[in-house]
């Protein structure tokens, strides 16, 4: 990281000072609601049926780590779409910033750093709620969960930011959220195990990046991780981040210094 990128980061932080209360409420309330309604309410129905299908754990302990990864991904994508679009167009700061000595890629780095910050804090809030529900085994596990979830968020943010800088109409952002993020959210093994899917569809689920995040968090939380699988998950998420950065370097230059 370099000084101009940190300037963009601090600009984001100054703006965030005005809205952080709302996001803090959402970061706590969101996991609370989902864990209560789905873990508690729906869990009652699932657990009534017997825990064998989930590998002998209660539904809420199965759901919580998956939801952590999925929710952090959602926060990261939301921060990477609307705010980036606004920064290029409308009253955003990108145009003013690129007229100074700041390079487009610095803006990408600074903005991504801010999103990483948002992903980490919202993951932290989520894990705090999990601790309160007695869903995390130790402080060490909790920290590892925050890290894994934040990495999942950044892995999604890096390519999303790179894409959003060139988006022309806000409806494209909507469509991306509806047709890409929501299906991932609902079908990447968050709410049920991928093993429940028909055998033919399973490889598709394994190919989605969110599944790697979900499975990583779940393995950490339940203590069922195997080293080989953990390395595969980490490699996938890091590879997505690096690719996103490489693409972002090009798209930011192309759209901000045309």
């Amino acid at each position: 990281m370099n000084a101009p990128a940190l300037r963009e980061f601090s600009y984001r932080m100054i703006r965030y000072r005005r809205t952080w209360r709302g996001t803090a409420v959402v970061s706590i309330a969101n996991p609370l609601m989902f864990l209560l309604a789905l873990g508690g309410g729906l869990g009652t129905l699932v657990d009534r049926n017997g825990p064998a299908a989930l590998g002998e754990v209660s539904y809420v302990s199965f759901l919580a780590p998956g939801l952590l990864a999925a929710a952090t991904m959602q926060t990261a994508v939301l921060e990477s779409t609307g705010p980036v679009y606004e920064s290029v167009r409308g009253r955003g700061n990108y145009r003013a910033a690129t007229a100074t000595s700041v390079q487009p890629f610095h803006l990408y780095q600074g903005h991504l750093l801010f999103i990483a910050f948002r992903a980490t804090t919202s993951a932290l809030a989520f894990v705090t709620v999990m601790l309160a529900f007695g869903l995390s085994r130790s402080p060490g596990t909790a920290l590892a969960l925050v890290g894994a979830a934040a990495l999942t968020g950044v892995a999604f943010a890096a390519p999303t930011v790179a894409w959003a800088v060139g988006v022309r109409r806000p409806s494209s952002l909507d469509s991306a959220f509806r047709f890409v993020v929501m299906p991932l959210y609902l079908l990447s093994g968050t709410f049920f195990s991928v093993d429940q899917l028909p055998a033919a569809v399973r490889p598709l689920a394994w190919a989605t990046p969110l599944w790697h995040g979900v499975d990583l968090c779940r393995a950490i939380s339940l203590g069922t991780g195997r080293p080989a699988m953990t390395i595969v998950h980490l490699c996938c998420l890091v590879a997505l981040t690096v690719t996103g950065c490489a693409v972002g370097r090009t798209t930011y230059r192309r759209h901000l210094h045309p």
Partner: peptide, 28 residues
Amino acid sequence: TPGVLVAEIFEPLLYLLSIGVGIGRLVG
């Protein structure tokens, strides 16, 4: 912009597929 309607049907369908069908197997 006729696409909006498609999106509005798509979302509940997704929930139906993931929660209804996916979790349905767990629920009995």
